[in-house]
Design a protein around this nucleic acid. Structure first.
Lengths: 223, 223
DNA sequence: CATGCGTCTGGAACAATGTTCCATATGAGC
DNA sequence: GCTCATATGGAACATTGTTCCAGACGCATG
C-alpha cells in the first residue's frame, strides 16, 4: 500500500486515492453498482488495474471509500444549530437525499453497516438523541433503532432507483410493484392488496419522515 | 423453463426446483453467501449447471427462492391468535430467529426488499397493525416503518454473523468493533465512544425488541 | 414392438470480473 | 550520474454466472 514518505505529487498526472475515489463515484453514478469495474476504472483514469491496487486494498475498500466520500459531504452540508428533534429530521433527510442522488449508496450502506460512513451517521443521530434528553441507558437502543430504520429504508429505496433516469423510473417501478400487489390473493395477503394503491402514489420522502417521526414519538412517550 | 405437462417424477433421482432450493439452502448455511455457486450446487446434486438452469432462471431467482423457503417456514411456525401487539413482537422475533439460524437471509432480505419473502413479512405486520386499530390512512406508513426497521437490523445482524460458528464469533466480532469504537476521537464522535461498551455487551435480541417497542409506542401515541 | 418427439440432463465453452504478478518507469537523495 | 524505494501499466490467472448443444429418457402414436 501507499507509503507516506513523499507528500507532494511527483508527477502532474499522479494517481491518488482521492482521484480514484472520485472516478469510482462517477462510474457508480453513471452505471450503478455494476458500472464500477476495475477495467472501467482503469480506462477512465488512463492506467492499469495494477496501479489502482497500489492505492486501494480491494473492491470492498473502494466501495466503502466511495460511500464515505458521498456521506461525508452530505453530513457536512447540514446546519449545526437546531432543536434536537429538527436536527434528527434534517440529518435523516440529508442521508435520504444523498441516496436519492446516488442510489448505489443505499445498497452499500445497508449491505455493509459497519463501515465508517454508517458510524458517522450513528454519531450524528446519537448526539441529537443525547441532546433530546434521553436517559443514558436508553440512548444506545434509541440511536440504533433510528439507524436501523434509516438503513432499512436505504436499501428499499436503492433498489427501486437502480435504473438511471430519476423520478420517472422510480414512479414507474412503484406502479409496477403496486400492480402486482393489487393482483395478490385477497385471502392470503389482504393488507398488501389494500395498501397497493398507497404504494403507487406515495412520496418516498414523506414516508421516510413519517417513520422517523414515529420513532421519535415513541421516544418521547417512553423516556 | 419447466413445463407442467408431466406431473409425476419420471425418474427417481429427478431434479426438481424443491430439491435444488434445499441444496442451495444447505450450501448457504454451510458457507455463507459465497458458498453458493452453480458449480458447488451441481456437484452436490450430482449434475451439471445446465440442468439447474432448466429449473431456475438465474442466481437472483435462486437466492430469492432460498429466502422464501426459510422465511415461509419461520412465519408458519407462529401461533395465529394473540393480541396484536404481542403478535407483532412474535412475528418480528420469528424473522430475527430465522436470520440468526441462517445469517445469509438477513443480507438477502435487506439487499432485495421487493422479493416475495419480504412481501409476506409486510403482510403479517400489516394485518396486526390493522388489528391494533391504526387508522387506515396511517397503516401504510406504520407497517412500512416497522418493516424498514426489521430489514435494517437484518442487514446489520447478518454481516456480524457472516462467519460460521454461532455465538462465539458474533460476540468476538462485536468486541472487535467496540474496541475500535472506543479508540475513536472523542472530539469528533463522542457518542459512539460512549456507547462502545454497550455494543460489546448488548444482546441482539433485546436490542431488536426494544426497537420494535419504540415504534409501537410511537404508534400508540400518534393514533 | 419400433419410432418420433417433447422433456430433461450433463458438461463443455464463453464472457466478464477481481486479483496477482512482474517488468518497467519515475524522480528524490547521495 | 547512480541507486533504490516508490509508483505504474498491462498481461496473466482463477473463479464466477450464463449459454449452448449433443444426447438420454420415456410417453404417445403407428
Amino acid at each position: 500500500m501507499a507509503g507516506e514518505t513523499h507528500r507532494p505529487e511527483r508527477r502532474a498526472d499522479a494517481l491518488t486515492k482521492e482521484r480514484i475515489v472520485e472516478a469510482a463515484v462517477a462510474l457508480l453514478d453513471a452505471g450503478g453498482a455494476d458500472g464500477l469495474t476495475f477495467r472501467a476504472l482503469a480506462a477512465r483514469l488512463a492506467t492499469g488495474s495494477g496501479a489502482i491496487y497500489w492505492h486501494i486494498a480491494d473492491k470492498h475498500a473502494l466501495l466503502a471509500a466511495a460511500t464515505d466520500h458521498v456521506i461525508a459531504r452530505a453530513l457536512a452540508d447540514r446546519v449545526a444549530s437546531a432543536p434536537p428533534r429538527e436536527a434528527i429530521r434534517a440529518l435523516a433527510l440529508a442521508v435520504f437525499d444523498a441516496i436519492d442522488a446516488h442510489p448505489w449508496v443505499g445498497a452499500q450502506l445497508s449491505g455493509d453497516p459497519w463501515q465508517y460512513a454508517v458510524l458517522c451517521i450513528l454519531a450524528g443521530i446519537g448526539a441529537q438523541v443525547t441532546a433530546l434528553g434521553v436517559a443514558e441507558r436508553h440512548r444506545f437502543n434509541a440511536a440504533t433503532a433510528l439507524l436501523s430504520f434509516v438503513l432499512g429504508l436505504a436499501g428499499q429505496y436503492a433498489v427501486g432507483s437502480r435504473l438511471v433516469g430519476g423520478d420517472k423510473d422510480r414512479a414507474a417501478f412503484l406502479r409496477d410493484v403496486a400492480a402486482r400487489w393489487a393482483q395478490l390473493d385477497p385471502e392470503r395477503h389482504p393488507f398488501v392488496r389494500q395498501v397497493a394503491a398507497r404504494l403507487a402514489e406515495h412520496d418516498d420522502r414523506e414516508q421516510f419522515l413519517a417513520g422517523i417521526d414515529l420513532i421519535l414519538a415513541g421516544l418521547e412517550r417512553a423516556h
